[in-house]
């Protein structure tokens, strides 16, 4: 059984300028200890989905259909009370721009203690000792001294390590990493990703990596889910999606990703923009208007197309035949 299962989730924002259908019929699965990369361009709904999983979505957001199951429990039951009990303990999350994602006027050690105090019975000296241990676990040198540091005294990479320490303090079974390397320089990015992978392996923790960097997802994840405009358009084992992308969007996205010796001119940009999700006349396939393979039947509900073992695309005209 999978650790996390999102089933046909739909979510909309009620705004003054209309209803934004930010997620529609989204399903994904993540096994215990597995790693799933959720990829797509900015605005495709990746973060909205991860916030919904944790139940920290915006007040204007409403989940209109679907279920989120975690270790067999329905997280949306009892108005999200099940989720509240697990958040921060079994499910944890780290964010982009670590320097602003930590409380600027609280010592980092205390911020770890806040989480430990909330979810464990540790108090006093043992609490402090455990907080320092958490800092050491994310390979922060000299953790006793760093305990009393404020975020503004640390580098971006150090702040991200602190955030990981906060997230992992209670040994969660699932870590959601939302663009964890955005805002960090390249060498720090690699170190942070290695740290997340190593800690995931050590503790048998599943990871949901949200990124627009396909190269990163390819290196890091066993499985991929490609999102476009609030739909998951293709999902499957990472290498399968890269080698034989079936959905035209996934195909173009993989072509737009530099691999090895690619030169800039060989990289294809994807034409057009995400459709306005407030529109009431959105076609069944939200990529149709940007798609070179568009046909009249793209307006009717999408079929499931099985590309291979565990590799699925949602498209009337998959690119399977030419791809291989």
């Amino acid at each position: 059984m999978s650790l996390l299962a999102v089933e046909n989730l739909s979510l909309e924002f009620r705004t003054r300028s209309g209803i934004v259908r930010a997620l529609e019929n989204v399903s994904l699965e993540l096994p215990e200890g597995g790693s799933l990369g959720l990829v797509g361009e900015s605005g495709s709904g990746k973060s909205v989905l991860s916030f919904a999983i944790l139940g920290i979505q915006d007040a204007a957001a409403r989940i209109t259909a679907g279920r989120i199951r975690f270790a067999g429990q329905d997280l949306l039951a009892n108005e999200g009370r099940a989720m509240k009990a697990l958040r921060g303990r079994e499910l944890a999350m780290i964010f982009q721009n670590p320097r602003v994602a930590l409380n600027p006027i609280r010592q980092v050690g205390q911020q770890i203690e806040d989480v430990l105090r909330r979810h464990t019975d540790l108090r006093g000296k043992t609490l402090r000792a455990r907080a320092i241990e958490c800092l050491a676990e994310v390979r922060i040198p000299d953790p006793e001294r760093r305990y009393a540091a404020y975020p503004f005294e640390l580098s971006g990479g150090m702040c991200q390590r602190v955030m990981i320490a906060i997230a992992l303090a209670c040994r969660p079974r699932l870590l959601i990493a939302d663009e964890p390397t955005t805002g960090l320089d390249v060498t720090t990015q690699a170190a942070i990703m290695r740290l997340i992978r190593d800690l995931g392996h050590e503790k048998g923790m599943a990871t949901l990596l949200i990124t627009h960097d396909l190269g990163l997802a390819r290196e890091f994840c066993d499985k991929l889910a490609v999102m476009h405009a609030g739909h998951i358009v293709e999902t499957g084992p990472t290498e399968a999606v890269f080698r034989t992308p079936a959905h035209p969007y996934a195909a173009q996205l993989t072509r737009a990703t530099p691999v090895g010796q690619d030169r800039l001119e060989n990289l294809a940009a994807i034409p057009g923009n995400l459709p306005d999700l407030r529109r009431t006349d959105l076609p069944a396939c939200r990529f149709a208007e940007r798609c070179e393979r568009r046909a009249d039947d793209c307006a009717i509900p999408l079929p499931r197309y099985e590309v291979g073992a565990g590799h699925t695309a949602f498209c009337h005209h998959p690119t399977r035949l030419e791809a291989a």
Partner: peptide, 14 residues
């Protein structure tokens, strides 16, 4: 609406 409040909520703080 700051990022660190989201972090605190994601960590399940009261």
């Amino acid at each position: 609406s700051a990022d660190f409040i989201r972090t605190a909520r994601a960590a399940g703080l009261a």
